[in-house]
Design a protein around this nucleic acid. Structure first.
Length: 846
RNA sequence: GGGCAAGUGGUGGAAUGGUAUACACGCAGGACUUAAAAUCCUGUGGCCGCAAGGCUGUGAGGGUUCGACUCCCUCCUUGCCCACCA
């Protein structure tokens, strides 16, 4: 009987059923064993799993099974990130309800996951759209509301006209909606925010403790949080006396500020231009810029446009009067929405100044061009140098000056220049200085309101008398009304349901209205890993004891696309829970592995490109084991993986070989192996067997090198298949049996179905998942003879066999006497002989 | 523009500073077969050579070293992330 499609189906179904019946992967708290929490990023239930899922979950499954066999109490759960827009879109398209559609998809997905043989504890399965789950979303929200972490404010927000909803900054990619790629516009709305910025410092600082996260994820988070040190400088409007704060990271260039620029949306603009003769022109410019979306403004990178306001500002360091401009290259969202322009030392300012013929002054000397004149500059000099034209700071190195000028500004009163009116000078005094050293963060508060149906209702009630009233705890969850028309035409669908909206105020009992926004789905996924610890606890969000045992996650595995959003939010939630006293750790994920993408024909597999390969069809033909093996063998987990139809067949062939070896060459025998009876062939087999154990163990635990781990098993298979059971057949058969068993054990985390079947056939009464991981014997790895490579001047010139641990002298005698080597060193003087024990000899000549 | 990662046979990929190309796919030849598939065996970086063997070779160019895919410098290319961030 061969390892046919039919056999594969039988075996894989049999063992999936076995694991379910025997609850092989069900776990509970057990203080006698070390715990290991292996987590993968839960899927969005679209109905079908794709190769990305298969790769992600296969990697995690190997880790989980490996750790289990090593004696750990392994928590390996799965669930579904089930709220969100696709369900609404699908519901509209298929004339069904999002809930119906979602639960149907979950069912399909569960079957597919089961058909891959993943070692989940299915008792912990959860979906974020379950009322038992999202009620705790609401509970968290209310805790955040209590602490002031959740708050409502009106502001200009990102709005996707196609999805008809607001978007977080994180969801705007290159000015486009991350989901539908529509150009995002700005809209003024009252929205709910989470004050993630309160944790900015800690979120940045704790990145240093994440020793086992990929470097690039840490960098991406660091850049996203974006801490920059600088100085806020208080300029004054000359006529009105208004303070105009400007943020700069380059206070060392302050003496070179020759004009100032405000963002078109800057709140002071209106006042400044009120009596200005330029008013009409300025207003026209502002209107024109406002029509352009942010993305268009960003794309016009090369053309900076602006207009003079007619008003001037006073530079507090020297009392100089500089013109105030308005330009599209200054953004209201960053800093203070106003900049001091130093065209000589900032390229953007330089381009703008050239365009509008604004003055320039060099204040940092370019060491490579110390006599540069403003007229000759072809670009701004942004490097380091010595300060000039900068009053008492002349001669300082600019890096030093950054610090000194910042300190001086926070202490100093404005200088006594004649041009400044006494009123303006006095107003500076109230600021206790003309500037302040500040830290600026790129990170914004997180906008979580969504005008969508399929999400967690925000549990707030608006009462005419009492204002914003949180829904009392005992009235949670605020359930999503089932009967609702989803049109996708905009506005919050919940607002249409009178039964939902109209409610009595829990405080005063008068008529009130519910909040009709739902939460962004990233809220749901920011804490699901905690819920897995006690997924069905209906009394509390999670059991402290369970969480204390299982958390933090030992190994988290998922796609790089979540490097910023999901991981940052989860870290934020964890810190918030810690501050609530629910947990006593600050970081949720100890180790992070970001798996590479699956490509086909050099491109990312995607529906839109039409180059997807359906895992289901591969499983049907070759089985889950072959698919798993291919995915693990074809590339290291963090690298991109190129799909190859031919190579999957190769994986199947390898499994077929194993099938035949067990069926044809394994013969049950009861005899003790005696190493004193070993001949060369036996020693060789034992060496490869032990080497395989060693390499596979190390490759998995030190950096998930599954591809090389598998190649080690293949090497053992190659040796084992050549092994002859001739003289002393009983003893040799026992030795062969041992090697076969080792192959099956080592391979079982990778291809569990076949290995279970083979194990059962050979000896197992119990699931192979419960068998201890094999140990190796260091002595068996030793060889009697080793090959010594001989180089002359670094070039390979010969290979010799020597007894292990031969001394330098012993080596020299043979090697230097060798005819061929002699040929190469003839007529040369030997400078030195380098010996790498048991490996190499290099003869260096002159 | 900034940051990060990577560049090795026909292909996927291996190599604590120590034999470059492990392991596999593919390809070629052979065995088995009426034939094919499957399976097994042999070969497989390039150039020269009948062969033994030699030369050359890890994106390019330098450097350190007895010895460099590996470390350092300069550059090129590709991918990813961020970006008028003051």
């Amino acid at each position: 009987m061969a390892y046919t499609t039919h056999e594969i189906k039988r075996i894989e179904t049999k063992w999936q059923q076995y694991w379910a019946d025997h609850q092989t992967f069900k776990v509970s708290v057990d203080h006698k064993k070390p715990k290991y929490y292996c987590l993968e990023m839960f899927p969005y239930p679209s109905g079908k799993i794709h190769m990305g899922h298969v790769r992600n979950y296969t990697i995690a499954d190997v880790v989980a099974r490996f750790k289990m066999m090593q004696g750990y109490n392994v928590l390996h759960p799965i669930g579904y990130d089930a709220f969100g827009q696709p369900a609404e879109n699908a519901a509209i398209k298929n004339k069904t309800h999002p809930a119906e559609w979602t639960y149907h998809c979950i069912e399909q997905m569960r079957e597919e996951l089961k058909s891959m043989g993943f070692s989940y504890d299915w008792d912990r399965e959860l979906a974020t759209c379950d009322r038992e789950y999202y009620r705790w979303n609401q509970w968290i929200f209310l805790k955040m509301f209590e602490c002031g972490i959740a708050y409502k404010k009106a502001s200009s927000v990102n709005w996707c006209p196609s999805c008809e909803t607001t978007l977080a900054n994180e969801e705007v990619i290159q000015g486009e909606c991350w989901r539908c790629k529509t150009k995002v516009i700005q809209k003024d709305l009252e929205q709910w925010y989470l004050k993630i910025t309160q944790y900015a410092e800690e979120l940045l600082e704790d990145l240093k403790t994440l020793k086992h996260w990929p470097e690039r994820v840490l960098t991406m988070q660091e850049n996203w949080i974006g801490k920059s040190y600088g100085v806020e400088i208080y300029f004054k409007a000359k006529k009105t006396g208004e303070t105009i704060p400007v943020f700069t990271t380059r206070p060392d260039t302050i003496f070179g500020a020759t004009y100032m620029v405000l963002a078109p949306e800057h709140p002071l603009v209106e006042k400044l231009i009120k009596d200005s003769p330029h008013r009409g022109k300025v207003q026209a410019f502002i209107d024109k810029t406002a029509k352009k979306s942010k993305s268009l403004r960003m794309m016009g990178e090369l053309q900076k446009k602006g207009v003079f306001t007619g008003e001037y500002a006073i530079n507090p360091v020297n009392g100089e009067t500089i013109p105030i401009w308005i330009a599209d290259y200054v953004l209201m969202e960053y800093g203070t929405g106003a900049i001091m322009a130093v065209p000589t030392h900032d390229q953007r300012d330089f381009l703008f100044a050239k365009e509008y013929k604004l003055p320039m002054r060099i204040v940092i000397q370019d060491p490579r061009n110390p006599n540069a004149r403003v007229e000759d500059l072809e670009q701004a000099f942004e490097g380091d140098g010595i300060l000039v034209n900068s009053a008492q700071f002349n001669g300082l190195n600019n890096q030093e000056a950054k610090k000194k000028i910042g300190e001086w500004m926070s202490a100093e009163l404005p200088p006594q220049f004649g041009e400044i009116s006494p009123e303006i000078r006095d107003s500076w005094r109230t600021n206790k200085g003309i500037g302040k050293i500040t830290v600026h963060w790129r990170l914004r508060d997180w906008l979580i309101s969504r005008q969508r149906y399929w999400g967690t209702p925000i549990p707030i009630i608006y009462c005419g008398r009492c204002g914003m009233v949180p829904v009392p705890d005992d009235q949670l969850p605020v359930e999503l009304p089932e009967k609702i028309k989803i049109t996708g035409l905009g506005g919050s669908p919940l607002a249409q349901s009178k039964e939902f909206v109209n409610i009595k105020c829990p405080k005063c009992g008068k008529s009130a209205k519910r909040e009709t926004d739902t939460m962004a789905t990233f809220f749901d996924s920011s804490w699901y890993f905690l819920r897995y610890c006690c997924a069905h606890d209906d009394k509390q969000i999670f059991d402290k004891k369970e969480v204390a045992y299982w958390m933090p996650v030992d190994q988290y595995i998922g796609g790089i696309e979540h490097a910023i959003l999901h991981l940052l939010y989860s870290r934020f939630f964890t810190k918030f829970f810690r501050d609530l006293g629910l947990i006593n750790f600050s970081e949720p994920f100890q180790r992070l592995l970001t798996q590479g993408m699956v490509l086909k024909d050099g491109e990312v597999m995607s529906k839109s490109k039409g180059n997807t390969v359906d895992p289901d069809s591969v499983v049907d033909k070759y089985g889950a084991d072959a698919l798993r093996l291919f995915i693990l063998f074809a590339a290291p987990p963090e690298d991109q993986l190129e799909w190859n139809d031919a190579a999957i067949e190769g994986s199947w062939k390898f499994l077929n070989r194993i099938w035949h070896v067990v069926n044809q060459r394994y013969k049950a025998i009861n005899i003790k192996i005696d190493s004193r009876q070993f001949d060369e062939q036996d020693k060789n087999l034992e060496r490869d067997r032990n080497a395989a154990i060693k390499e596979v163990t190390e490759d998995i635990s030190e950096g998930f090198k599954f591809n090389t781990a598998i190649s080690q098993v293949m090497i053992l298979m190659n040796t084992l298949e050549k092994y002859q059971v001739t003289a002393n057949p009983q003893h040799k058969q026992a030795l062969l049996n041992d090697a076969i068993k080792t192959v099956i054990l080592l391979l079982s985390p990778f291809t569990p179905h076949l290995c279970e079947e083979m194990w059962e056939k050979m000896s197992g009464k119990e699931s192979i998942a419960k068998i201890a991981w094999p140990q190796y014997n260091e002595n068996a790895l030793k060889k009697d003879l080793v090959q010594i490579v001989v180089q002359v001047d670094g070039k390979l010139r010969g290979k010799f066999m020597f007894p292990v641990d031969s001394t330098q002298e012993q080596l020299k005698i043979v090697i230097l006497d060798d005819a061929k080597i002699k040929q190469y060193i003839q007529g040369k003087t030997i400078q030195k002989v380098i010996v790498v024990p048991n490996k190499l000899v290099n003869i260096a000549t002159s």
